[in-house]
Structures are given as C-alpha cells and as structure tokens.
Computed example of a mutant assay.
Amino acid sequence: MTERVTATDAALELIEKLKKRHGPLMFHQSGGCCDGSSPMCYPDGELRIGETDVHLGDIGETSFYMSKDQYEYWKHTQLIIDVVDGRGGMFSLEGPEGKRFFTRSRVFSDEERKELQL
C-alpha cells in the first residue's frame, strides 16, 4: 500500500530519541505561519486535532497530521520527512538537538493515485 507520509532513517532515529525523552509524540505539518511550512513535533495530545485536520499516516509509530486545506494542495504528493542541521520551529521538540525536521515530497505515480483514489 502506498503511504502518504514516510520518513528517512535519520528522521526515524531522531523520533526514537525524542520519544525516549518526551514519551509518545505527534506531528502536524505547519501551514506556513510563524514557523514556516515544516513538520512540527509535539508530545502526543499537546496540539488539539480537530475536524479540519487529516491523519496522513504514522512515521515511527507517531501520528502525522495536516490541515484539510493544506492537504488539498499536497494530496498528489508523498511527504518524506527528513532531518537537517539547524534550528527549526521554535515550538517543535527537536529544536534543542540542533536538528530540524524537514519535508521533502514526490509526486505520486498514476498507479499510486489510482490506489489512493485521487
């Protein structure tokens, strides 16, 4: 089955490190306000998820959400969560690690779009 969101090995390693320190986590793809458009990592339940959010899947046994409006724009792509050096969103848990989560993407193939019913 085609996944809407995946993660690199580096991202999965950082997720595991953060889970050991903070417990269960969650992600929400920021819509571009104060922290730009980046995946934000929070302790699970810290950010209220509502009817305007779409659950894209799990990475590292961690739920990943995006707003419906942003999903409509990105639904034709697979999100690939990676890690790069530097400081990311000030509210995201990885900040003190000197790393930040980073979203890469690729367009789904025709076969994948059919499978996902896009």
Rank of each mutant, 00 (worst) to 15 (best):
G36V: 07
P39C: 08
P39L: 08
P39D: 06
P39H: 04
M40H: 11
C41L: 05
C41I: 08
P43G: 13
P43L: 12
D44R: 06
D44K: 10
G45Q: 04
G45V: 06
E46V: 09
E46W: 08
E46H: 11
L47K: 04
L47R: 09
R48I: 09
R48E: 09
I49C: 01
I49Y: 00
I49R: 00
I49A: 02
G50W: 09
G50I: 09
G50Q: 11
E51I: 14
E51D: 13
E51V: 14
T52C: 12
T52Y: 14
D53L: 04
H55I: 15
G57A: 03
D58V: 14
D58F: 12
E61A: 10
E61Q: 11
E61T: 09
T62P: 02
T62V: 05
T62S: 04
T62L: 06
T62A: 06
S63M: 14
Y65V: 05
Y65D: 06
M66N: 01
S67P: 01
K68A: 13
D69K: 08
D69Q: 10
D69H: 11
Q70P: 08
Q70S: 12
Q70L: 12
Q70I: 09
Q70T: 11
Q70C: 13
Y71S: 00
Y71M: 05
Y71L: 01
Y71A: 02
E72T: 10
Y73R: 10
Y73E: 14
W74T: 04
W74Q: 00
K75L: 02
K75V: 01
H76D: 09
H76W: 03
H76N: 09
